[in-house]
Design a protein around this nucleic acid. Structure first.
Lengths: 159, 159
DNA sequence: GTAAGTGCAAAACCTTTGCACGTCG
DNA sequence: CGACGTGCAAAGGTTTTGCACTTAC
């Protein structure tokens, strides 16, 4: 059992509160509901998923509030934002994990697998430096097709 | 002078015609105008840019036709589609160039630099294989900030 | 002649934003 | 009290689509 079911984790919650307080912002009920939904989310989820889960904690959370909270959650490293070229963005609870990961994106089902890719740090630095720039972020994505039934979370066979 | 100004290139045009004929499609005036605008485009351009350039060749080209032509141009390797996480997608004339390139994306101006990254082929294969998948495409992007005045195509200083 | 292609405008879609009303400190 | 935050609904902006008319072959 690699992961115990999400527990209150007052520690992370405190860190988030500190983050927003430091910016002169407020720890409102709705904001904390979105935070809790975000940090306890499993796998890759969308803004809409996040809204649904936040509403399960606090009915009054609106879509606008979710979208307004996302930059705070990203900025405080509670979640990571993931644009894999689909319509919607995906989000992933940061379990304090490394930042240098690639995504293996299945074209058949909608699963995304995170893969460690530590060399990206070096690569980003090298490429940016060569052009007189400072690296901010790097993204490596491999799109792939399931080979019959072997996709980890296969959901729908190709039409 | 690394590149002569775009010439008719009946060769590539022929290849494109063959591609669409093979699919039972037709080489209409508008479609060929979009093709010509696409293959002769410099650098990274948007669908809107493409529309503008195609209209310069044939006034009657509509936005819908451009969007409907793009998948054909991508499918026939005339252009490459580039999603760098901004609102719009970018396109790049494929000068028969290698497929394995990374993008260095400047956050200050809107320039994108293509960088060879041949190892992506190997990496994609290895990662996909490890998960029992077949690689289809790989994408590596480095977001970076200009270090004062040194961005290759710097356009607007940070506000 | 007929199936494919086109322009137009409306639709779709996620995300952002303006505004008047809450509410946290 | 006075910002900051919220919900609602409308706006935003790119890309897609339905429809009736054209056109390539």
């Amino acid at each position: 059992m690699p992961k115990p079911p999400s527990q209150p984790s007052p520690e992370q919650s405190g860190a988030f509160k500190a983050f927003i307080a430091e910016k002169g912002l407020r720890a409102t009920r709705q904001r904390m509901a979105v935070f809790e939904a975000a940090r306890s989310g499993q796998g890759h989820y969308t803004a809409e998923d996040l809204l649904k889960r936040a509403r399960a904690i606090d009915r009054t959370v609106s879509r606008a509030t979710v979208y307004r909270a996302i930059p705070l959650l990203v900025g405080s490293n509670v979640i990571r934002e993931m644009d894999v070229g689909r319509d919607q963005k995906y989000y992933l609870a940061e379990a304090g994990s490394a930042t240098f990961r690639a995504q293996l994106i299945c074209e058949d089902c909608d699963c995304i697998v995170e893969v460690d890719a530590p060399f990206m740090e070096w690569y980003g630095k090298a490429v940016a430096a060569k052009h007189g720039m400072r690296p901010i972020a790097q993204k490596l994505q491999v799109t792939a097709a399931c080979l019959n039934e072997r996709c980890p979370k296969r959901r729908a066979p190709r039409p």
